[in-house]
Design a protein around this nucleic acid. Structure first.
Lengths: 122, 122, 122, 122
DNA sequence: GTGGTCTAGACCACT
DNA sequence: GTGGTCTAGACCACC
């Protein structure tokens, strides 16, 4: 069971999905490594097994993992895919951040200052 | 009519709401200024009139505007409210940004560098 | 309700999926056209609404359609996507066919003859 | 050990089964010839021994091979059985091919042209 | 034991 | 009325 607190405004499966993606990107899940079974994932995050299944299905659609029938689900061995996801996810974060802050009227210097201040706290 | 392209994954009313809030924060909409009628807002953003109404209802609930019966809707004159919104919105942006980037394994220095690089581009 | 007879060896949602894809490829569903609601799709094919939803979700993942919140699901306007799908689907069919028949020892001439004979019948 | 790459969407035992059937049809495995032991089949294809056993069980059920206790498994000597299998397999291939391509809107002439072009390549 | 599919039904948010 | 999410539970095929 997991200590993750869900943000109710974001679908659970998205949150778990991002969690797993981060694990792959960070190397907490290694290429070729066997992942939790869908059922165990469900237990870990206290979610319904179907929801867990769905998460793996999405990961597979993004080619971040693959399934061997009857054996389980495994992290992709294609390191390039992993790099792409890292790019993609960080770009999305940066873009919404900069776009939003500009809209509010913050300067580059202000952004840098705020980040310096808060990085350790967060 | 407006050039805003909607992100279909975010409710339209949220997107317009944030747009208006930003306008107030930036001063594009001044305290006490008369706002568009719901009907005109609907036309400007090409949205359903019901959606436009809802947006004003939410703005009113946050006390960022008020309605004078028969005269229209006006931006709040309470500058403190405006400040609060600015804080609130920027905090939300910063928090998701830092939290997400940390999860992906980025350091403070990397964040600052990336922002420096991209601020002008965005 | 629909006259489709399901092949029990293939998941229903795949069969319906291919059906809809074919409709798009053939132009029976035009770019930008509103598609059946998930509920109506469920009725048409006599399947569970969740299954119908899932089908649209997959189509959307392949960018063959897009969703406007609260309004419905629409066929993509990107004609290139449609062309790609046509290529992809026909290539898959041809490749399995040729590969399988070669494995069985059939020559090119035999294949052509068999197709000539059976095309009308099928 | 074998160079076969498995398609994860098709059960492994089906893939190996078809492989062996093709070998019989093509004459790579001759009537009366002794086949690999289940154990060696497992090694050749890098599969689970249980899966290998299952494959022979299915082949036997279709009467394409028979077992002499203590001696091993042998290819059937009944040439008619072999012919039937060839018919069956090729019909299945042709039918899915023609049905699918028709659905996509291809004409008989187009099919023939595509096959002419690709047969050598495949 | 593993994942895959399907049904059923509930609840929610959006337009 | 539209799609989106989640739960629950069943059944199947595969290894």
């Amino acid at each position: 069971m997991y200590e993750l607190e869900f943000d109710n405004n974001v679908p659970i499966y998205i949150q778990v999905l991002n969690n797993i993606k981060s694990d792959i990107v960070k190397g907490a899940l290694l290429p070729g490594e066997k992942m939790l079974s869908a059922r165990d994932l469900a237990i870990k995050y206290q979610i319904n097994p179907n929801t867990a299944s769905r998460i793996y299905k999405e990961l597979e659609a993004e080619e971040l993992c693959y399934t061997k029938r009857g054996l389980g689900t495994f992290v992709t061995e294609d390191q390039e895919k992993v790099e792409n996801i890292k790019e993609e996810m960080s770009n999305a974060l940066i873009d919404t951040f900069i776009k939003g802050m500009k809209e509010l009227g913050f300067s580059k210097e202000q952004l840098i200052e705020m980040i310096s201040e808060r990085y350790e706290r967060g």
